[in-house]
Amino acid sequence: MTPKRVLICTNRTCRKQGSQKVLAAFQSLPVANVTVESSSCLGQCGNGPMVFILPEETWYSQVQPDEVKTVVEKHLQGGIPVKGMLYPKFHPH
């Protein structure tokens, strides 16, 4: 099984939108075989905080700290992306 990586943009714009708290929320809910990392700009300024999950390349936009638990339980543990939170630019409804 390929380990997952969760990248949370902590560059200027996302940081102003609260990405440090999103990063802390992911770090407080560790999952086996999942690495949580602070990232430089992911190129989606103004839609953050951005969360990018590899290797499947799933994008979440405007993630709030209180939503992290849902992503951890449904996506990282359950394997099912959280549809309502997906970034529409890369995951059109």
Rank of each mutant, 00 (worst) to 15 (best):
Pro88Asp: 07
Pro88Trp: 06
Met85Ile: 04
Glu73Leu: 13
Arg15Lys: 14
Gly48Val: 07
Ile80Val: 15
Gly79His: 06
Ser40Gln: 14
Pro30Ser: 10
Ser40Gly: 14
Gln44Asp: 12
Gly84Pro: 01
Leu54Asp: 00
Gln20Met: 11
Gln62Asp: 09
Leu42Cys: 05
Val72Asp: 02
Gln27Asp: 06
Glu37Ile: 09
Thr10His: 01
Gln17Asn: 12
Ser61Ala: 15
Met1Ser: 15
Val51Arg: 10
Trp59Tyr: 04
Ile53Ala: 06
Pro3Arg: 12
Gly48His: 06
Pro3Trp: 08
Asn11Arg: 13
Leu23Glu: 01
Tyr60Pro: 04
Val82Glu: 05
Pro92Arg: 12
Pro49Ala: 06
Glu56Ala: 10
Gly18Phe: 12
Gln17His: 14
Lys4Ile: 06
Pro92Trp: 06
Ser40Leu: 13
Tyr87Val: 11
Trp59Ile: 10
Arg15Pro: 00
Gly48Tyr: 01
Thr35Tyr: 05
Pro30Ile: 09
Arg12Asp: 12
Thr58Ser: 00
Lys16Cys: 02
Ile53His: 00
Pro92Glu: 05
Gly78Thr: 03
His75Cys: 11
Cys45Asp: 06
Val22His: 09
Gln17Pro: 00
Thr10Arg: 07
Ala25Glu: 03
Val72Trp: 11
Leu23Gln: 02
His91Trp: 07
Lys69Pro: 02
Cys9Met: 13
Phe26Arg: 04
Lys74Gln: 15
Ser28Asp: 12
Glu57Ser: 15
Met50Phe: 04
Ser28Val: 03
Cys9Asp: 05
Lys69Ser: 13
Thr58Asn: 01
Thr13Leu: 05
Leu7Pro: 00
Arg15Gly: 08
Asp66Arg: 10
Cys14Gln: 03
Arg12Gln: 11
Pro92Leu: 08
Ser61Leu: 04
Val31Gly: 01
Ile53Gln: 00
Gly48Phe: 08
Phe52Pro: 01
Pro55Leu: 13
Met50Gly: 05
Gly43Val: 00
Arg12Val: 12
Ala32Gln: 12
